[in-house]
Deep mutational scan, measured.
Amino acid sequence: MAAGGDHGSPDSYRSPLASRYASPEMCFVFSDRYKFRTWRQLWLWLAEAEQTLGLPITDEQIQEMKSNLENIDFKMAAEEEKRLRHDVMAHVHTFGHCCPKAAGIIHLGATSCYVGDNTDLIILRNALDLLLPKLARVISRLADFAKERASLPTLGFTHFQPAQLTTVGKRCCLWIQDLCMDLQNLKRVRDDLRFRGVKGTTGTQASFLQLFEGDDHKVEQLDKMVTEKAGFKRAFIITGQTYTRKVDIEVLSVLASLGASVHKICTDIRLLANLKEMEEPFEKQQIGSSAMPYKRNPMRSERCCSLARHLMTLVMDPLQTASVQWFERTLDDSANRRICLAEAFLTADTILNTLQNISEGLVVYPKVIERRIRQELPFMATENIIMAMVKAGGSRQDCHEKIRVLSQQAASVVKQEGGDNDLIERIQVDAYFSPIHSQLDHLLDPSSFTGRASQQVQRFLEEEVYPLLKPYESVMKVKAELCL
């Protein structure tokens, strides 16, 4: 049975990233139509530049190519590739079939990587351009969430054990800070992308030097003109047959890092959902379990974690691919890159769409948070109580021993009897502590235990987050809708 299948058929496997999760716009960027249309555009740009620099290419040939950029006979191309065992030459023939007058000058002087690699770089750039505003929107939604809850005390956790208090907004800023680093890295790697350009079979530009009869300047002009037509500021000066596969490492490393950030955020949300302090959106008709109707599973956060793990592992592909590119190139890269580049971007696209949807509907339960604080705060307040007693004339050592005994009794009630923490009640009825009984409410005010959390939130948002989001103001209103 021949390899390949009808990918629109229910009898043929289709990647869930495309069929179930990723956005239509990201799927289109990695589609065959987008790819092969870009090949034709690159052939047109090459012909236009070659004509401008004096090669015998007519206006009629150029116009014929322009008129057929979208006229792609995919069936013919597939048949040609089956016959020739070469995808680029299959599309040269297919393009030439609908451009008979231009057929002889299509791909003039070029090698397969002229269309293959340059198209990949265009796709990487455009895919990054799709991700950047999506990530900015996630940051914006979380920034709104953090600002609104900047002063809401909550129990902090280290080692997932109760620690000092923080605020809900401050905790959210930990998430935002990681995503801001990801946004900066995505922008950097996007701006650092260079075009492969017009380089020939081993990167020496020998074929173009021959076409222009040894004119170095025209060869350099050709490279520059096509690079500018493709919208790049610069091209690699040095290439082998391909652009260095280190570029793929750079791009997928940034995406993998984004995956790590999203995994951490969504894990926190899942843990908070278990504590009943916070939940992701839950639709009115949504079913959490087929057997347990009360369940409210954090399905979206779980999906993000599941896909983020996949995204983090994909960076190993370009690392290994770059390491086995012998001399000017081997074909070890080809099949692998067809999979890992598309999957990385479709996965990143999915987790950003999902995280935006989550961040637009996060639900906080202040009463649950308050109750958990009441359970733990008495123990945390013991040092403040000791200091207040010393100020009232008591002995630190005597007070410490009193607190120690009462704390152990209260802990026994919590752990052995399943009761509430009654340390404060014990202190309130103990005559030894009568000098500070009137101060206990103040000493137990949760806001006095959150330090500068709310001020940190305000400063972080104003100095770091809002300036970073400013270039994306025009796209901030787009909502994230999930079908599944």
Rank of each mutant, 00 (worst) to 15 (best):
S323R: 04
M380D: 00
S474W: 15
T94V: 14
E464R: 03
G4C: 15
I237E: 07
K134Q: 15
V457Q: 04
F195R: 03
T201D: 01
G8Q: 14
S151Q: 11
T154N: 02
L443G: 04
Q320Y: 11
N185C: 12
G394S: 10
M278G: 03
K391W: 06
V465A: 10
K479H: 14
S19W: 09
Q63I: 14
A102E: 03
A308C: 14
R296E: 01
W326Q: 07
A22L: 09
F28K: 07
L482Q: 14
K218D: 07
V92D: 01
E360L: 11
K391L: 04
E425W: 13
R37I: 13
I62G: 02
D216V: 07
M181H: 15
Q375L: 05
M389W: 04
S253Y: 08
S9G: 04
A77N: 11
L255D: 05
A411V: 08
H437W: 11
A90V: 08
N357V: 08
G96W: 07
H107V: 00
E250A: 11
A3L: 10
S257P: 08
M292A: 01
E48R: 03
Q61G: 12
R337M: 03
K229E: 05
K415Q: 02
T450P: 06
G109Q: 00
A127S: 11
Q325H: 10
E279L: 07
D332A: 04
M65I: 14
A235E: 11
L84V: 03
F160Y: 12
E383W: 05
P10E: 15
F28H: 10
A206R: 02
E462A: 14
K101E: 10
V198Y: 08
R329A: 04
S67A: 11
E425G: 10
I139N: 11
A146N: 14
T154H: 07
M181Q: 09
P100L: 07
F145R: 04
Q356W: 10
P133H: 14
A335W: 03
S140V: 15
C340W: 02
R296H: 03
L406R: 06
S323W: 02
P162L: 06
S395H: 09
C173E: 02
I351M: 15
E302R: 06
R194Q: 10
A273W: 02
A410V: 02
M316Q: 12
C173V: 04
S395Q: 14
K229A: 07
V478I: 15
F195Q: 00
L209S: 10
T267V: 08
D398L: 14
C305L: 03
E425S: 11
Q320I: 12
L275C: 06
A260L: 01
L314H: 10
D6H: 00
R337F: 03
C266L: 13
M476G: 15
